[in-house]
Design a protein around this nucleic acid. Structure first.
Lengths: 210, 210
DNA sequence: TGTATCCGATACATAGATGTATCGTAAAGT
DNA sequence: ACTTTACGATACATCTATGTATCGGATACA
């Protein structure tokens, strides 16, 4: 098979440009990022960019799609992993930590939160992007809801709202807490801790009181 | 006293520029907005702008501060209004509608949500703005928490979490729902309805089951 | 190894935004 | 009413970003 060295140069270039763009978009936003800045970060000149992409916006849309698919895939993979471990059928199932670990994979470092926020605000202004954003949100909801369903079925836990409502609530709280933590300048570890604390409180509300 | 006509021309100009900037920033973002575009919207040329502000960013910061203060003041005013009406001591107090009406005043039309989101993402990148953003968030939390406290004291309702936690949770959910509704392209009325529905579900979770 | 092709670098043309200096007019003071 | 001052309009110089056309070297293939 074609190995890394033999990989078509174009593919490597495109990927390096995407990675660089993700960083720059996260740092200064779509409009604040010049094509020049993206290329510099990737170690190219603008010639490479225009030979690979039409516009900055095209690259941004491509990136937004990839990020969305990756997030959904990460949660799906986590579900499969948990199922294979037989976690859901164990006696002393810790619902909260399972959901936390599911959201953890969808969580990201500081730059990841910045990039998602950047995508979010452009989705607010761009109907096409909005549709994609909401669609991936729904996918994530379904994924997390499935975990909740599995937890409810396997363990002896009951929930006070539907699994989808619970999932959406937890995702919303998680995002809000992450953003506030990132704003407060906390590092990745503290951000996760803070988000988990808030999530734990919400989980207590959602769980049927024993 | 000096009436509207006699009002210092400068003040009027600054206000018109601020109003125009709020619209343009909401529509295309801070970086997407040219000074020219803001002035055109306000009915001026750039000469007026540079005679009143140093940079676009300065105007944005000023605007962010004003918006934050207005939101907090609106909630505070709503509390005073509700207290004066003696709502909290009435027998059949409807907790949810009280809190909804408090959040309603902090809510805004589509452009308002866009502007807040724009402020939010810049707060994520600007420590000084972040501090201000988080401070106003805390103020809002305290305001809403006070309403919750009053509801709890006056009525026969009990809450499963502290009033501040409940307030933050409701604000987070409200914002998330508003943003998603705005993305879905709903008009103002539908946006409020959607947000209220989600808020009602959360309120059920927070309230001590009878 | 020679050759054709691919693709990123370079150079250039253009557009748009910024900031400043100057001018003219509306408003304030007497 | 006359003068002065305040302030927005105009014009200009500059800077930055964009997009394209062309060039040259690396890569694939024989």
């Amino acid at each position: 098979m074609t190995d890394v060295v033999t990989t078509r140069r174009r593919d490597v270039t495109r990927q390096r440009l995407r990675d660089a763009a993700a960083e720059v978009f996260a740092e200064v936003g779509l409009d604040g990022a010049s094509v020049e800045a993206i290329c510099e970060r990737a170690g190219f000149t603008r010639g490479a960019f225009y030979s690979n992409f039409e516009t900055k916006e095209e690259l941004f849309l491509e990136l937004a799609g990839i990020v969305a698919r990756e997030r959904v895939a990460a949660v799906q993979a986590r579900i499969a992993e948990l199922e294979q471990q037989g976690v859901f059928t164990e006696a002393h199932v810790d619902a909260l930590s399972i959901i936390q670990s599911a959201l953890d994979v969808a969580d990201e470092d500081r730059l990841g939160i910045l990039l998602m926020s950047e995508i979010r605000i452009h989705a607010l202004r761009n109907p096409k992007l909005a549709a994609a954003y909401l669609a991936q949100d729904e996918e994530m909801v379904r994924g997390v809801a499935q975990i909740i369903d599995d937890v409810a079925r396997g363990g002896a836990l009951a929930f006070r709202v539907s699994s989808e409502e619970a999932a959406r609530l937890m995702m919303t709280v998680w995002e809000g807490a992450s953003v506030r933590a990132a704003m407060a300048g906390l590092d990745y570890q503290d951000m996760c801790r803070r988000s988990n604390e808030e999530l734990a409180r919400v989980a207590q509300l959602i769980l049927e009181p024993r």
